[in-house]
Amino acid sequence: MAPFTLLYFILSVVLYVVALPLLAYFSFKQKYKESIPARFFLFKNPKFKNSDGVWFHVCSLGEARALKPVLDLLSSCDIKITTVTQTGQSEAKKYDADVRYLPYEMFLPFWIKKQAFLIVLEAEFWFLLFSVARAKGARVILLNARISQKSAKKYLQFAWFYKKLLSHVEIIYAQSEADKNRFLALGAKNIEVIGNIKLAAKISKTKEYKKPQGESIVAGSTHEGEEESVLKSFVEYKKQSNAKLFIVPRHPERFEAVFELMRRYADKNSLTLSRFSHDKEFDTDMVLVDVMGELNNIYAISDIAILGGAFRDDVGGHNPLEPAFFGCKIITGKHFFHQKELFKYVHHVQYVEPSEIHKALMASRELPPSMVEEKINLQPVINRILKN
């Protein structure tokens, strides 16, 4: 083990020991009850069964879902996938793949088996993941690689570190020219811009629901604080429209809190309210969609999509391709830094402050549906893997 790698490993052990009480505490939280024991204590998280496969590492739900068009073209390969979050793990298990949680870094020298490729999506930069995988014989590739404008300065402050990390990478397939330039500034080599692989995803609905009468508005992938802004705006908009509102929170552990918030607004403004999990109907003024995997089905019967994750400054936005595919008129916030590349491909989007959602709803009456025109070619990536 090289001196720097050894020092990094020792630091990871020290941090692990210091963080043990917090890790034990968060292990009992619903959001982490599966991922923390697996990642930090290797509970039900053994090594991959076989060597010499194609190993993809993703963080969460969005990245796991984005893998589908790539995996469809690699059906003959032995696929492995690691994730960080529980939602990502659930999505990854839908594929014909050997799926695990990525262990904390200090475990990786003992956990990793030799693979033909390690393909890491987006911005999952773990030094020991890269260095150990390469030392054991894997060719390391960054796919859909990005560095947001907001994060670029922080990366540059530690450019010496990221130069070491990226020295283990064979090729970087970047989302955009801006991302390529940021990687070059960190000392990376061999970078190709192919666009965002999420453009290659096949977007579809899994169920057919009857569109309710009147105008349908969906607030999709919302985070704490965003639902209240949506509800305030909807109450005002409802005075001038026969509209219905469907709220689909991003995280299932928030379903109860969001329902209570919706109940307060319903009671105060004499609106009817229901939970989708109870009757699968859309016949009330407001519906909490408290079932995972339904968002595309809801987009398909909606006229307007208020896309969450961008009305706060700490989330970075969510994928606009799905509501655009179903012809929704998209309203979102101004903090979409993690999805900036995707929004570049989507036309007719309103970017507003939380206090301006009502104004945007009114303006939507005169606007065309959002749409996506661009595509991506995954063949260079597939050719590199299959010609191994």
Rank of each mutant, 00 (worst) to 15 (best):
K31G: 11
K31P: 03
Y32N: 10
E34K: 11
E34S: 09
E34N: 09
S35D: 11
S35L: 07
S35H: 07
I36N: 11
I36G: 03
I36K: 02
I36W: 15
R39P: 05
R39G: 01
R39Y: 06
F40G: 00
F40W: 15
F41Q: 14
F41H: 02
F41L: 15
F41K: 07
F43D: 04
F43K: 12
F43W: 12
K44C: 04
K44I: 10
K44M: 14
N45R: 11
N45F: 09
N45P: 07
P46H: 12
P46F: 09
K47M: 10
F48P: 02
F48W: 05
F48G: 01
F48Y: 10
F48A: 00
K49H: 13
K49S: 11
N50M: 08
N50F: 07
S51I: 07
S51T: 14
G53L: 03
V54Y: 00
F56T: 05
F56M: 02
H57K: 04
H57L: 03
V58W: 14
C59K: 03
S60D: 08
S60W: 08
G62L: 14
G62S: 05
E63A: 00
A64E: 04
R65P: 00
R65S: 06
R65I: 12
R65G: 00
L67Q: 04
P69R: 01
P69Y: 01
L71V: 14
L71D: 14
L71H: 08
D72L: 14
L74W: 09
L74Y: 02
S75G: 02
S75L: 05
S76D: 15
S76N: 11
S76T: 04
C77F: 11
C77N: 14
C77S: 14
D78I: 02
D78K: 14
I79A: 02
K80R: 13
I81V: 15
I81W: 03
I81D: 00
I81G: 07
T82I: 08
T82K: 04
T82G: 10
T83R: 06
V84S: 03
V84Y: 10
T85R: 03
T85M: 02
T85D: 09
Q86M: 05
Q86G: 03
Q86R: 07
T87L: 10
T87S: 15
T87H: 13
G88A: 01
G88R: 11
S90D: 15
E91G: 01
A92V: 14
A92S: 14
A92L: 05
A92K: 12
K93A: 13
K94W: 02
K94S: 12
K94Q: 10
D96P: 00
D96N: 02
A97M: 11
D98N: 12
D98G: 06
D98Q: 05
Y101N: 06
L102S: 06
L102T: 09
P103A: 13
Y104E: 13
E105I: 13
E105H: 10
E105P: 09
M106W: 12
F107N: 08
F107V: 04
P109T: 07
F110Y: 10
W111P: 11
I112S: 04
K113E: 01
K113D: 04
Q115W: 02
Q115Y: 01
Q115L: 00
F117G: 03
F117Q: 00
F117A: 01
L118E: 07
L118I: 08
I119Q: 01
A123W: 01
A123H: 05
E124T: 14
F125I: 05
F125V: 04
W126V: 11
F127T: 07
L129S: 05
